[in-house]
C-alpha cells in the first residue's frame, strides 16, 4: 500500500514540476531552454511512476492476504525520527552543545537498556561528544557551531 501512495505522490509531484519547468525562460540562442532538461526528467519520471503504479496495483489485486504491517517494529524508528526532528528544530536556539547532549541522552535512554549503570554512562558520552566536537570544530576546523541563547 505504501508503494502505491509513493507512486501517486511521485506522479503528482513530477507533473506539477513538469508544468512549472515549462514556464522557465528559453533564450533565443539555445535550442533547449532552462526548462527542457527538467521537463525530460520529470516527464519520464511521471510515465515510469505510472508504470510502477499499474504494476503494483495489479500485484495488489492478485494477492489474497493483506500485508502484515506491525506498528511495534516502527515505533522506535518513529520516536527517534521525532526526536531527531526536534533536535534539528532547537539546534540553533539551544545551541549545539545543549541540543546535542539532550538529543543523545534522550535517544540513548529510549533505545538502550534501562539499567542503573546506563544513565551515568550515556550522560558522560553525550557530554564528552557534544563539548568535544564543539571545540574540535571551533579550534581546528574554524567552524563556529551555534552557541544558543544561554551562552550568548
Amino acid at each position: 500500500m505504501g508503494e502505491i501512495v509513493f507512486y501517486i505522490a511521485l506522479i503528482i509531484a513530477s507533473s506539477v514540476l513538469y508544468l512549472n519547468a515549462g514556464t522557465l525562460p528559453s533564450p533565443p540562442w539555445e535550442p533547449l531552454g532552462s526548462g527542457s532538461f527538467p521537463q525530460m526528467v520529470f516527464g519520464l519520471m511521471a510515465v515510469l511512476s505510472l508504470v510502477g503504479l499499474i504494476q503494483k496495483v495489479r500485484e495488489y489485486r492478485k494477492s489474497t492476504g493483506r500485508e502484515k504491517f506491525s506498528f511495534s517494529q516502527y515505533k522506535v524508528v518513529g520516536l527517534v525520527f521525532l526526536l531527531f526532528t526536534l533536535y534539528v528544530a532547537v539546534f540553533n536556539f539551544l545551541g549545539f552543545i545543549i541540543s546535542t547532549a539532550l538529543f543523545l541522552i534522550v535517544t540513548m535512554w529510549l533505545i538502550g537498556p534501562k539499567t542503573k549503570r546506563s544513565l551515568p554512562l550515556i550522560t558522560v558520552i553525550a557530554l564528552a561528544f557534544s563539548v568535544g566536537m564543539f571545540y574540535v570544530f571551533r579550534v581546528y576546523l574554524y567552524v563556529y557551531l551555534p552557541l544558543g541563547v544561554f551562552f550568548q
Binding site: F103, T107, M108, I111, G112, V143, L145
Partner: peptide, 20 residues
C-alpha cells in the same frame, strides 16, 4: 544504542559545517 545516536548527531554536524 550508543553508536546510532552519536552518528546521527555527526550527520547534523557534517551537513551544518559545509556552509554554516
Amino acid at each position: 544504542y550508543i553508536l546510532i545516536p552519536v552518528v546521527l548527531a555527526f550527520c547534523v554536524l557534517g551537513s551544518f559545517a559545509l556552509h554554516n
